[in-house]
Design a protein around this nucleic acid. Structure first.
Lengths: 250, 250
DNA sequence: GCATTAATGTTAAAATTATAACATTCGGTG
DNA sequence: CACCGAATGTTATAATTTTAACATTAATGC
């Protein structure tokens, strides 16, 4: 019943995967149907394509998902991370070489980097790289390898060694779980090597986590709390209740 | 005179670098001015932010720049590349490990890859990686290093060695200049090592160039025409006029 | 302080996009 | 072939976005 509809969506998706946008009018022409049909295709069947002010865009591309018009909860989370990153930004100094961990926590930090004259960012995450690629004042070093979609990051055997060859100043590490006794953990095992290498080689190690991660343990352990010079969080009380020492007043 | 305007644009840009979109209304609130002022800021001063159906987006982000509503000339170029890539797609087989070169020539190819069950793509270009990252059926290997904005690609000392360790089936190489006598060349020197390594290690080497590159020589020489097993182009006549043997009928 | 100019706000009109309702076409079936 | 229903087209209407014109406020120099 949706055979043709599906085929249309597929061809549109094909036209869009290369990146870019397609006007509704042009999409209709391309498929040889009316604009209304394209609209209906889009609303009837789930698709990675979204309609934004008369234009079709791939929703999965970075830079397209809305930031402020999220659900209340998501917006809150974003606010928290944004504030968190503003505090982190205070520790950054002109000329630093920063290791930036994967995940969404540190993304809002990247926009703050425009305020510096010159920085270097080392990362193994695609979303971090994309955000940094647009900053003319920041040198970007991406550690490549096999791509893991779940964390939008890369993994490779010699990543640890590659990191240790770099002169990393400050390591900004995120985590999915922080427990006083069981240490700091994340979801994916391929993240362990780069995180540990960054912790091992950096002159300063900063753990950046929001309070929701306290008392949580995730499958991949990668460090103990004492491995970090600072813990930056949004809720100190919650941290101290968990027995986590936060070295920084925010 | 544009002091405040500039500051507003900067703060908006900051809100957007993390990726995402911002509704005009919200942008106005954020800056404490009217929507009209934001509109004017955007039209008066050049900025990487663009307004798309009432939403602010970073124009530099992939997936935002329009594909089909380009100027006539650009659209033509896109069409050419698209057709070119459809021909290239015929040489791809299920299970292949493809080396995909940087530049814009091969981008339209990536959308065709959905039609295969399983592939592996090896690249050193950020735009290629972004287009491939969304394809669930394609394993992505990104060769990292220092980022070069001019070609949206990465360079490193051991990239050549890294490429030769991989079992690359087919190398799809693009170029900025192809000359019968002076060989195949590109703009940037950091592209030479990965291109040469891919040519050296791949089982099949395919040069993909549109006719506008014939008879052109660019600063960085990287291969002679005889290094390729096939040359895929959109204008055979032009090729043979230049004395370039095109092994493929398209 | 007043005049002048730039910056911003407000409003109305035009253009575009979204939604809904109804008309038409197309593919199959008895 | 007449009938049915799904798919698509058409049209009108509502909502939104864009543009332009004019009003207001803020900033600056004299």
């Amino acid at each position: 019943m949706s055979d043709r509809s599906t085929r249309r969506l597929a061809s549109l998706q094909e036209a869009l995967t290369s990146g870019g946008t397609l006007h509704l009018r042009e999409a209709a022409e391309l498929c040889g149907v009316s604009e209304m049909t394209i609209r209906r295709d889009l609303t009837t069947h789930p698709s990675p394509i979204s309609l934004l002010g008369g234009r079709l865009v791939m929703a999965s591309y970075p830079g397209v998902t809305p930031v402020y018009d999220l659900t209340e909860q998501e917006a809150n989370h974003y606010q928290v991370k944004h504030r968190l990153c503003q505090h982190v930004a205070r520790f950054i100094e002109e000329g630093d070489t920063l290791f930036i961990d994967c995940g969404s926590t540190l993304i809002p930090l990247l926009s703050q980097l425009i305020h510096f004259r010159e920085l270097t960012v080392v990362t193994y995450a695609l979303n971090v790289a994309n955000a940094v690629a647009g900053l003319a004042n920041v040198r970007l070093v991406l550690l490549g390898g096999l791509f893991y979609a779940s964390s939008q990051s890369f993994g490779s055997d010699d990543m640890g060694a590659a990191i240790e060859r770099l002169g990393i100043n400050k390591a900004l590490i995120s985590a999915a779980g922080v427990d006083c006794e069981r240490g700091v953990s994340c979801f994916h095992f391929h993240e362990v090597a780069p995180k540990q290498a960054a912790i091992a080689t950096a002159m300063q190690r900063i753990l950046v986590v929001d309070a929701s991660k306290f008392g949580v343990v995730r499958p991949a352990y990668f460090a103990s709390l004492s491995d970090f010079d600072r813990v930056v969080t949004d809720d100190e009380q919650a941290a101290s209740r968990e027995g986590i020492a936060v070295s920084t007043v925010i």
